[in-house]
């Protein structure tokens, strides 16, 4: 296997109404890397993510996952490798119980029933929700829904986790739990988010998008130290890197702690 696991080469995409959404987007992501994709609303983050599992087909350029280019033939394998966690867990959890939902993916992979059950158990144990197996999704809290959505992807044993706004709409405690959960994963991670403090916590690398282009790509601390860049992309420094307005204490520039 090659040393990089996700590669985008000169991706271009234009929506049917001729809004250009991606222009010359290129990057390589390596095994085990955890990468944040940040940018203002409409910068092209979600459009980019939808290319990574082949839901959208680029107008030009190519996506490679592992050793394969993403084509119609490799689509199925790619979708198993790339686990996609969507923004709204209500869209992702469409079955009537937590168990059925987490089992959905493995069943589509034609795994035997025992293997399916084992994978469901493991995935639910990982996100710490084993006792909610029989619960219908609409009777879960937002944080629980988010974790079940992650479990429903984990049960397919993906190599790469792609997540769209995993912490939005969560209360502080649920957000903290989720960040701890994500930090524990050994998968390669690509996370599109506005939660820059989470980025500091779990992503060593950050890609900044603006108007469909990549404006910057580098180690997270460097990116967030560049006030000019952030300003021009309608972003702000993570709260903990801003000085405290009340007591005036110095901003926190510690390197992110992972795990």
């Amino acid at each position: 296997m090659s040393h990089h696991i996700v590669e985008a080469r000169d991706l271009e995409f234009t929506y049917p109404d001729r809004t250009p959404a991606l222009q010359k987007v290129s990057f390589k992501i390596h095994h085990g890397e955890s990468v944040a994709v940040v940018g203002a609303n409409g910068a092209g983050k979600s459009t980019l993510l939808l290319h990574l599992n082949g839901y959208l087909t680029p107008s030009a350029g190519q996506v490679r996952i592992g050793d394969y280019p993403l084509t119609r033939e490799t689509l199925r394998e790619v979708r198993r490798t790339v686990g996609m966690v969507f923004h709204d867990p209500d869209d992702q959890l469409f079955m009537s119980t937590v168990f059925d939902d987490v089992a959905f993916g493995p069943l589509n992979l034609n795994l035997p029933a025992e293997e399916v059950a084992a994978r469901v158990d493991k995935a639910l144990a990982t996100v710490g929700l084993s006792d909610l197996r029989e619960r219908p999704p609409h009777r879960l809290s937002s944080g629980q829904k988010r974790r079940v959505a992650i479990a429903s992807v984990l049960s397919m044993s993906p190599d790469i986790l792609v997540m769209d706004e995993p912490t939005s709409g969560l209360d502080p405690r649920a957000r903290r739990q989720l960040i701890e959960l994500l930090a524990g994963f050994k998968h390669s991670k690509i996370i599109a988010t506005h939660d820059l403090d989470m980025v500091v916590d779990i992503c060593e690398r950050t890609i900044v998008m603006h108007d469909g282009r990549i404006r910057a790509d580098g180690p997270t601390p460097e990116i967030f130290a560049d006030a000019e860049l952030l300003e021009s992309c309608r972003l702000e420094k993570p709260l903990r890197m801003q000085g405290c307005p009340v007591c005036g204490s110095a901003p926190d520039h510690r390197p992110p702690t992972i795990g």
Binding site: L50, N53, Y55, R76, R79, R80, V82, G83, M84, F86, D88, D90, D91, Q92, F94, M95, D100, A103, F104, G105, L107, N108, L109, A113, V116, A117, S152, V153, M156
Partner: peptide, 24 residues
């Protein structure tokens, strides 16, 4: 829109054309 997003969520979990369950 939601139907489309659900379809997307199904596709990204290897959905082909049939919804399967294991209940016995």
């Amino acid at each position: 829109d939601r139907a489309e997003r659900i379809h997307l969520a199904m596709l990204s979990r290897a959905f082909t054309s049939e919804i399967r369950t294991v209940r016995r």
